[in-house]
Amino acid sequence: MKKMALFAVCSSLLVGVNTSAFAVDFPHLTTTGYGEVIAKPDMATFSVSVVESTMTAEQAKSKVDEVVERFISSLAQAGVTEDSISSSNLYLTPQYHYPKDEKPELVGYRASRNVNVTVNDLSKLNQYLEVALVDGINQVDNIELKVSNESEYQEQARQAAIKDAKQKAESLVKGFDKELGDIWQIRYNNSNTQPVLMKTMQMDSARMEKSSYQDSAITIRDRVDVLYKLDD
């Protein structure tokens, strides 16, 4: 079982303040509950690029296509399924030199293609990056660490937020010698998961990031606002 830390975050409380789109004309209390789950990533997606500049468009296209095809073939041999790999179309642009007070001179062509890979086993991420390096990929555009069962963690965070809102309401009414009535309104504000993103890097730099993959953590948050009636 994956380790995770579950906790509620302290939040500001509003007593008797209108938080809905309409006026609330009875005594009430509003609390905001927050919940977080810290999850260890077990999968990843990464995007790499191959870029070539040559004198002719045909040469540039040929070199880029050759590298991409070799990389995709190597991934397949390493056990990556076809539906975990996607590649972009070729992007080809002319390159010009701009002499002062003269017409631009065509000096060659720049071709590039991207390949996106889903890694279902995080322990193999470094292996696939090494494959990319060997096959001639020259840039990692991004690496995003994820959890495969994110919905389960999100539910854990949601339940923590609900518990947090309840505890705050009960504490407040006790402190003010009031009675907590029925729930009048619940407003759900789902907080997005914060994935672990690695910056754009050259392939040699990507190899230096190895130790950080397994030590990373993903924060999954949730939030709920609850408006209670206050009994006399």
Rank of each mutant, 00 (worst) to 15 (best):
K2F: 11
K3I: 01
K3Y: 02
M4L: 03
M4F: 05
V9G: 02
S11Y: 08
S11C: 12
S12T: 14
V15D: 15
N18L: 12
T19C: 10
S20F: 06
S20R: 06
S20Q: 05
V24C: 01
P27C: 05
H28M: 08
L29N: 12
E36M: 00
I38E: 14
I38Y: 09
I38D: 07
K40W: 01
D42A: 07
D42C: 04
A44K: 08
T45G: 10
S47C: 03
V50M: 01
M55A: 00
A57W: 02
E58G: 04
Q59T: 00
K61V: 03
K61H: 03
S62F: 03
S62W: 01
S62Q: 01
D65H: 08
E69D: 11
F71T: 11
S73L: 10
S73R: 12
S74G: 06
Q77Y: 14
A78L: 09
G79D: 08
E82A: 15
D83F: 07
S84E: 15
S84F: 12
S87F: 10
S87Y: 13
S88M: 09
N89S: 03
N89W: 02
L92E: 00
T93F: 06
P94I: 03
Q95L: 15
Q95T: 13
H97I: 09
H97N: 11
Y98I: 06
Y98R: 02
E102Q: 13
E102G: 08
P104F: 12
E105G: 04
E105D: 05
V107L: 04
Y109A: 08
S112M: 00
R113F: 06
N116I: 01
V117G: 09
V119Q: 13
D121K: 14
L122A: 12
L122F: 12
L125Y: 10
N126E: 06
E130C: 00
V131P: 06
V131A: 11
A132N: 10
A132Q: 11
L133V: 09
V134E: 11
V134C: 03
I137W: 10
V140S: 08
D141T: 06
I143C: 02
E144W: 03
E144V: 05
L145F: 13
K146M: 15
Y153V: 02
Q156A: 13
A157N: 03
R158I: 07
Q159G: 02
A161Y: 08
K163E: 08
A169M: 08
E170L: 13
V173D: 05
E179D: 06
L180H: 04
G181L: 00
D182C: 01
I186R: 10
I186H: 05
R187D: 13
Y188D: 14
N190Y: 08
T193H: 04
T193C: 07
T193I: 08
Q194S: 13
V196G: 03
V196E: 05
V196I: 07
K199R: 11
Q202T: 11
M203C: 09
S205V: 15
R207N: 15
M208P: 00
S211D: 00
Y213K: 03
I220H: 03
R223C: 15
D225Y: 14
D225T: 13
L230T: 04
